[in-house]
């Protein structure tokens, strides 16, 4: 077989590599790919622009620092919290609450969701109740949660639990229900018992979806954090924000919100990475 000419040889024959021309053709063609480097940097440009505008607005004195402190004040606040160590003690307490609250919700939601997804009787019995209860505003339950769980960590964990459990059970039910029914039929034809089919077919088939549910719900717990630490808390990232409100410490509030967002983002990323490692078979080619 004759060798194909290399790109360099093609170029020597005066046949230009068309990729350069493609790049110049522009970034605004409908649905056309753009270079990866540009795609990625674009994601940094927008936040950078926002910070620049923010910086300009505050430096020019267009708004009072009470309403919008300068980005530099936020950085200073970050430094203050980090150097005094309160940032880490707050983060540790909040992370602990989130982990316990989410883990409790998960430990219950997984078996309940799997039962609801596989047995119509459990779905019939639990789905209407859970579907209704999940619209309960969790904030409204704070007084009750204090009555039931006191004012310690248990109360915060309970709020985080209530905020995730019901939704999670329904999502896991869906994850289980959407697997291909023929996988179950194949298992039956091959002579496996119901318990074996559950463990060796339904579970692995639903697991990537369930993992995604984990990722999404753990994200919610971060957004529930402030609600959980709304009352009767001395420490925690959410508490710090609520305290700052009293002193009108806008820089503390903004930094706190950004920091919780950052932790949420990191959790999300970790779940995605672990998911990819755990479920390598879902990768294409």
């Amino acid at each position: 077989m004759p060798n194909r000419p290399t790109v360099a040889e093609e170029a020597a024959h005066g046949r230009a590599d068309r990729r350069k021309a493609e790049k110049r053709a522009g970034l605004f063609r409908l649905r056309e790919p753009i270079p990866d480097s540009i795609f990625t940097s674009a994601g940094f440009v927008v936040p950078a622009l926002i910070v620049l505008v923010w910086l300009a607005v505050t430096a020019l004195g267009l708004v009072r620092p009470l309403f919008l402190p300068s980005p530099l004040a936020i950085v200073e606040e970050a430094w203050r919290q980090a150097s005094t160590g309160i940032l880490f003690s707050d983060a540790a307490v909040s992370t602990y609450r989130i982990m316990v609250g989410w883990a409790t919700a998960t430990v219950l939601a997984v078996p309940i969701g799997i039962l609801m997804g596989n047995f119509r009787i459990f779905e019939g019995a639990l789905e209407p109740l859970i579907s209704t209860v999940r619209y309960m505003p969790v904030v409204a339950l704070i007084p009750l949660s204090i009555l039931w769980a006191g004012i310690g960590d248990e109360q915060k964990i309970l709020i985080l639990f209530l905020g995730t459990f019901f939704q999670m059970a329904l999502m896991i039910m869906d994850n289980v229900k959407t697997i291909d029914i023929n996988l179950i039929r194949a298992g039956q034809t091959l002579g496996f018992s119901n318990a074996e089919i559950l463990r060796r077919i339904i579970l692995p088939a639903a697991l990537p979806g369930i993992w995604d549910t984990f990722r999404i719900t753990v994200g919610w717990t971060w957004t529930y954090l402030v609600v959980a630490e709304l009352v009767a808390a001395q420490t925690g990232l959410g508490r710090r924000i609520m305290d700052a409100q009293r002193y009108l410490a806008t820089d503390t509030i903004i930094f706190g919100a950004l920091f919780i967002g950052l932790l949420g983002l990191i959790t999300d990323y970790l779940f995605k990475r672990f998911g990819r490692a755990l479920f390598r078979w879902t990768a294409d080619r």
Partner: peptide, 20 residues
């Protein structure tokens, strides 16, 4: 009386065990 190993089934939508 039920499914069994005397029969083999091939379904329309492939229905493979994706994790194997």
């Amino acid at each position: 009386t039920g499914p069994g190993r005397d029969r083999g089934f091939v379904f329309q939508g492939y229905s493979l065990f994706e994790w194997l």
